[in-house]
Design a protein around this nucleic acid. Structure first.
Lengths: 202, 202
DNA sequence: CAAATGTACATTGTTGACAATTTTCCTCCG
DNA sequence: CGGAGGAAAATTGTCAACAATGTACATTTG
């Protein structure tokens, strides 16, 4: 999995690694994570590991019980999942509507690059890489909004959806869906872009 | 301000105290919080204070910059606020719809008690207490859902709304709005309950 | 004088030791 | 046997010392 992002701090690096393992189901819902195990594994003390746990808890990937440690969170229940979908759609369409006029060539170029990563992940049938780049695609859109707080609002919701990434029969559909979003943006078709985005979020 | 809830751990107690100070604007957006200041103030080491910072960051009340510490978060911008309102409405109406059939006498009794706290806060013109009990009211509804993860989803959104609690001309309106919700629930009028809830969230 | 550089100071990050809590599992007693 | 009680082990919580980083301010340099 390519490390396209730069994780500055030690806890961020640890959290990024653990997140990947949760999203790729190497760590399964309910699995306990032990501070000493991970601190020896990463060659650091327990402090940074604890901090990484807090970050992932914030993202909804881990659940923390005082004096008992953390476990990998359960997937959203069938009852709650439609709510999560609705929330994520609400945020992402809000952002896309909001930035639509001000999208720059640089924005599009950046999203294009991520789309290429999505494409190659699909071609290689690499679900883990696809999950990562899918996240990066939507993240990039959210982050292009001026209000940086939107990202904090979006992330835990999006993460809860990403924990069960088994929606598509044909993995290549993921590429097509994202391409449709970008094509609509490029041809300045706002309604089509929103529609494509909503199709992709489910 | 009554401490109707039990905060088990040290960081939770510290976080509860700081949250109150943020929500009551004793701490203002942009204010920096220093670990040593608070650790001496609360008579603990920096560890629990850091942990409290993480909890409040998760709730959207503080913003953390690596190697720079935390500051009180800015209020949602005028542009983003309608989004936050929509998100909170989506979650709370989802929960109310979802639990409506299974609401017990005990639930209603509990909400009744909180409504009484809201009433006395309004009568005493105590905005801080009102903020606290308003939060407790909605929190109690969310928490009555089986899926405990919903609370984690709801909290950061609700907190962002609570940071600017100056919507009502007449503080007593808050009591009336919550009473309307509870009355509708008691008379088993689902549509009215949802409508009253949406009226209250803005 | 303005910008760059250096240097002390303030603050957060990390570590390892110890304390408190939870879990495990053995023993005892019915 | 089976459950209650209680050590022992495992694990998380807290602390204080030290390291790394960022900030403020004086000093130099063009």
């Amino acid at each position: 999995m390519s490390t396209s992002e730069i994780y500055r701090t030690l806890p961020e690096q640890i959290a990024a690694r653990l997140r990947q393992e949760v999203l790729s189901s190497k760590l399964k819902p309910g699995d306990p994570l032990r501070e000493v195990d991970l601190s020896t594994r990463f060659g650091v003390s327990r402090g940074p590991v604890r901090e990484a746990f807090r970050q992932l808890t914030q993202q909804g990937l881990l659940v923390l019980e005082p004096n008992k440690g953390v476990r990998v969170a359960q997937n959203p229940s069938v009852e709650v999942r439609p709510l999560v979908v609705r929330l994520r759609r609400t945020i992402e369409t809000f952002v896309l509507e909001s930035i639509f006029e001000r999208i720059t060539k640089e924005d599009i170029a950046q999203w294009e690059a991520i789309l290429a990563d999505i494409k190659s992940a699909c071609l290689n049938n690499n679900v883990d890489a696809l999950t990562e780049h899918d996240l990066r695609f939507h993240q990039a859109i959210i982050r292009s909004h001026d209000d940086k707080d939107l990202f904090a609002l979006w992330q835990p919701i999006a993460m809860r959806m990403m924990m069960q990434y088994n929606r598509l029969d044909n993995i290549m559909d993921s590429y097509r869906e994202h391409k449709r979003i970008l094509d609509a943006i490029r041809s300045d078709d706002r309604a089509a872009a929103i529609a494509a985005l909503e199709t992709n979020i489910q």
